[in-house]
Design a protein around this nucleic acid. Sequence first.
DNA 1: CTTGACCTTCCAGTTAGGGGAAGCCTTATC
DNA 2: GATAAGGCTTCCCCTAACTGGAAGGTCAAG
Lengths: 127, 127
Amino acid sequence: MNISHAAKAAGLPTKTVRYYADVGLVAAQGRSTSGYRTYSEREIRKLIFVRRAREFGFSIEECRELLGLYEKDDRASADVKQIATKRLFEIERKQRELQSLHDELSNLVTACRGDNRPDCPIINYLG
Amino acid sequence: MNISHAAKAAGLPTKTVRYYADVGLVAAQGRSTSGYRTYSEREIRKLIFVRRAREFGFSIEECRELLGLYEKDDRASADVKQIATKRLFEIERKQRELQSLHDELSNLVTACRGDNRPDCPIINYLG
DNA sequence: CTTGACCTTCCAGTTAGGGGAAGCCTTATC
DNA sequence: GATAAGGCTTCCCCTAACTGGAAGGTCAAG
């Protein structure tokens, strides 16, 4: 299977599939005589796995670890859970940060009249 | 005032202050005979303004616009409000995204036993 | 006079790819 | 068999907002 076919099957841009090969995340199965990357079902499954993990916000390095565990039949689920828990904490930290930003900014936006006069609580707060 | 003094007064790293000068966001007041950047109270206030705006997540370009309005006595508060509202919507979009990620990942993490056996709902979901 | 702490510019690296050029390869059509 | 369209390859530059570091000039103290 050619790279664009594999990319379509995995739901990823061709450039991304090539990038994953470059950084050694999902290698192509091999090369054709003319140098084209070839992909089989196994690589497609790994590409899909990575796409989903990336959608959860796991970094490339975390995807590398998860993929290793995915492929390892005698993995400990504790290892997977640890990585996922770390990501979950990051999400929660980001949520708290956004919540506090939202509260503050929301108050300021509400307090701003938004007319053609210069006085503005947002500017006052920042300045 | 030297750059490190100004940076300390504004609560920013020296490198960042130099970067803001490079991209034309907050120029130094001038240069000493030996080529050192000099800063006065006015620039310090602008640096503090930018630091606060950055803490709200405004981009450098948005900071440039806000700084322009900050300096413009005959600004319309509507212009400020528009920029801030845009940022607020971005925050809200990100919050919804994180909430959905959190819900899904949280379920998976809870369902994973985290022991030394290989079966794992997280891996099953991704694979 | 020298040491250490400043300052300067410039270059490279960070994340996860995207855009595009130059040049081969393949396939369809005439 | 020739040609054109499209796919593939590598390579390099670009993104945001800095951060780290190297090489070299400057300044104040001892």
